[in-house]
């Protein structure tokens, strides 16, 4: 029981502390480090954004090309079918 009382008293009576002499210097060092890191991270974000934009543009042009290729192919197929149909109709006349 005494021990518990002592522990509680210890908690109640914790006195204030003063920062150590090098505390401010360490803070400035950490601050400079964090600014460098955040600077790096914003340039990384910029590079990432540019990459995403380039990828999106490439994908868009690729899909556009595929689409026009498909249209071209379908047009040719239709042409072939029409040609065959014309041949067969003309041949049936004889």
């Amino acid at each position: 029981m005494n021990k518990e009382k002592n522990i509680l008293e210890q908690f109640e009576s914790i006195s204030s502390i003063e920062p150590s002499a090098e505390w401010n210097d360490k803070l400035m060092q950490k601050l400079n480090r964090s600014q460098r890191t955040s600077g790096n991270s914003s340039s990384k974000k910029l590079v990432l954004f540019a990459t995403v934009v380039l990828l999106a543009v490439n994908l868009f042009s690729l899909s556009d090309k595929l689409k026009s290729d498909n249209e071209q192919q379908s047009r040719e197929k239709l042409k072939n079918i029409a040609n065959e149909f014309l041949i067969s109709t003309s041949s049936s006349k004889y």
Binding site: P19, S20, W23
Partner: peptide, 20 residues
């Protein structure tokens, strides 16, 4: 920080993180 952590070195470290 010291009241929570009960350790001076840790309290000083965390206080620096607070200001950052």
């Amino acid at each position: 920080c010291y009241r929570f952590l009960l350790n001076k070195a840790d309290a000083e470290d965390i206080a620096q993180e607070v200001f950052i």
